[in-house]
Simulated assay, not measured.
Amino acid sequence: MTHTSTMTPTQRLSDAGVSIWLDDLSRERIQSGSLKELIKTRNVVGVTTNPTIFAAALAHGESYAEQIKDLAGTGTSAADAVFEITTTDVALASDILRPIFVQTQGFDGRVSIECAPVNAHRADATIAEAKALWSRIDRHNVMIKIPATAAGLEAITAVIGAGISVNVTLIFSLDRYREVIAAYLAGLERAKRAGLDLSSIHSVASFFVSRLDTEIDRRLDAIGTDEAHALRGQAGIANARLAYEVYQESFTDQRAQGLIAAGANEQRPLWASTGVKDPTRPDTMYVVELAASDVVNTMPERTLEATHDHASVRGDTITGSYPAAVKILDRIAAIGISYAGVTDYLEAEGLNKFRASWNDLLQTVRLALEAAK
């Protein structure tokens, strides 16, 4: 056991039961050894990606030149080239994380890749793409990201039912989160009926944190009263803490326990969007205030480095916080801000942002293919 005085904050966070996943990936990070270094020195045990991350990687990435040249030579379309490039990155990262996957018996060592956001409202297209990604990458430690839209719920059940591990993304509201858990359990029941090994199916539910604060703070500022000002920066943490309560309740009920007895895994909560947007707040706020056992915190590198450098990790900061969290959300509702209005808006905005990034990614690859011909 490392002596506490020499233990890093990221080690303390891991010891509190938080799995640290890096919210970033690029070919350069893989080839330079940066990912291996973060695993070794920053307690990173997983990776998440999304269209925005890949768009940034491709826009500044010389390391893709050779693959793009090969793809241009075979006349590959931009959409197919994006599929090849991103699945290559995820397969390479999965291989780097495989020792953790083996050591933790599938709990960690995971890499997530997102279905195209253009299909977010089409269950059939999302199911087909999830299966294509899973098959192409061909690594058991991959998770396919499916957004928690109404159509996404149907896709989650079908994809889990086919034995594929899923990272459910873009969750903002507690009601939608309950629906996500139900979709996961329905998928497990389908997999069980098909005779699949439930222990090999894993899932996380990605609850977005800072975006809720950004939008609610904007609405609080518009109200402009002292009471409104006093509530700024509190909604995101309160909402996520109540999500953890939903997780605890949902996986102790009879339906979930029956599946767990048959070998199934709990769907763990994952805190996404944990970079602090407001510079007046502590840059590790969404890390230290959301620590508890069996959660994942996926961090952009900047947040990861801040956490490693100076986070004051206090162990479990969620359990027992539920009554206070309810009060915060109740006070926000009482001054006229609709929780459902905010969460519906954020889901639509999140999909629009990912669609825009997806289009940027396609355009970047399209131009690169033309230049390589």
Rank of each mutant, 00 (worst) to 15 (best):
I146M: 04
I146A: 06
A151H: 09
A151K: 10
A151F: 03
G152E: 13
G152I: 02
L153M: 15
T157W: 02
V159K: 04
V159R: 08
V159W: 05
A162N: 14
G163F: 04
I164C: 04
V166T: 05
V168K: 01
T169P: 08
L170C: 09
F172V: 05
E179R: 09
V180W: 10
I181E: 08
I181S: 05
A182I: 01
A182E: 15
Y184T: 04
Y184N: 07
L185S: 07
L185K: 14
G187C: 05
L188N: 12
L188V: 07
R190N: 14
R190C: 10
K192L: 06
K192Q: 15
K192S: 14
A194R: 14
L196T: 10
D197G: 04
D197E: 12
D197Q: 11
D197H: 04
S200Y: 04
I201N: 03
S203I: 02
S206H: 12
S206E: 12
F207H: 07
F208G: 12
F208N: 10
S210H: 09
R211Y: 08
D213L: 02
D217R: 03
D217T: 09
R219Q: 14
R219V: 01
A222N: 11
I223C: 09
T225D: 10
D226Q: 07
D226C: 01
E227S: 11
A228K: 08
H229F: 03
L231A: 13
L231P: 14
Q234E: 07
Q234M: 06
A235N: 08
A235F: 02
A235H: 06
G236W: 00
G236T: 01
I237R: 06
I237P: 05
A238F: 10
N239P: 06
A240L: 03
R241T: 06
V246T: 15
T252H: 09
D253N: 15
Q254C: 00
Q257K: 13
I260Y: 10
A261F: 05
A261N: 14
A262P: 12
E266L: 00
